[in-house]
Design a protein around this nucleic acid. Sequence first.
DNA 1: GTCTATATCGTGATAGAC
DNA 2: GTCTATCACGATATAGAC
Lengths: 218, 218
Amino acid sequence: MATTSPETTRIVPGAARAARPQSRTAVRRTAILEAATDVFGARGYKSGSLVEIAEKVGMTHAGILHHYGSKAQLLLAVLAHRDEADLERLAEHRLPVGADYLDHLVHTAEHSADRVGVIRTYAVLSAESVTGDHPARQFFRDRFAGLRERVAVDLGLAVGADPHDDRVAAAAAAIVAVTDGLQVQWLLDPDNVNMPTAVRLVIDAIVENLRQAVSEPR
Amino acid sequence: MATTSPETTRIVPGAARAARPQSRTAVRRTAILEAATDVFGARGYKSGSLVEIAEKVGMTHAGILHHYGSKAQLLLAVLAHRDEADLERLAEHRLPVGADYLDHLVHTAEHSADRVGVIRTYAVLSAESVTGDHPARQFFRDRFAGLRERVAVDLGLAVGADPHDDRVAAAAAAIVAVTDGLQVQWLLDPDNVNMPTAVRLVIDAIVENLRQAVSEPR
DNA sequence: GTCTATATCGTGATAGAC
DNA sequence: GTCTATCACGATATAGAC
């Protein structure tokens, strides 16, 4: 799934936290989160194990449980941490809006190769979360809703339409879907899937189509 | 992922097999495959268990292993069985081609509610298969390649272009991606995702965009 | 062909020493 | 804060009776 922070992400008061020197345990916890991101991405949540994560940071799995209480809580911490990191990175630049944000999606696809780990993590976990009683189900439901809303707003700006128009909403869902779906295909077969080209094509086609549609009477 | 059979699906000699009365063990095996489809769909492959599958068909997990040897082989049998079933169903009607096939994709999305089980199975398993050494990785790689090829051919027919044109290939990947991506969003939040509308919109936009693009000189 | 019984392993989690 | 030790559980797979 697209990894740009949706607007549902709450801005935590800890923005200043990045500035002050972190305690040793805070550093340790961050290391755990990064190791967990790798393991959950490579193996999924259910079959990724605390032992493997522990080995990566050089401790036993009991230590991890000391910090995070349970495996499910660790997963949620991983997802929240990723959101914060994205948010900070995005805050360093001017936030793109409207057509610029859509371009930003293409730009993101162009640099996928540098971020296989994160991409796989989100692809695997979001699909896994549709099963039974997955601990991240609510997280991904909210996240997708936020992404759709964000894209709908920018699409509205780009084509001059109400973001809550049915067609704009459907187009937003489709744009989010196409990036996620392409990521799975690309992870399975990187040599035969050209993500940026496909994303660009879809966005261009949709924007043009919407421009016409909303300018005509229903 | 879209569940229509790609052309890579081999036509098995057993077409006649459906006609002749099946042995009791063949019936039993089919029951196992259906139970396994449910369980793998509801829980994923790794965390779905042979015991749960066995309970559904009223035997012990040892019985299942007698028939299929291992859990991984059972998974592959499930996927192959699904392909055969789709193929037989499709063979009963005239095979849609060109623009009709694209319409067929929309039509399929309209009936998703009747097929949540299968849809979830494919969504979960295809994403899970990008991890480490998943037994279905090759299967899904081939399947996606087949789907892309199939869609590219029909797109080519619909807009009058070479299926191997870069833009047509990218568009085909995008169309496959949008259906898969929407399925995940829909499984997580069925009330807020309108699949048929979004699929229709993307296909229309892409077809129109391609018609223009290929009629102009590069 | 299906069962029971068992082997073997890995899991998440808890308790308590240091 | 991290360790060792242990628990309780569930997994796949195998062996052999019937």
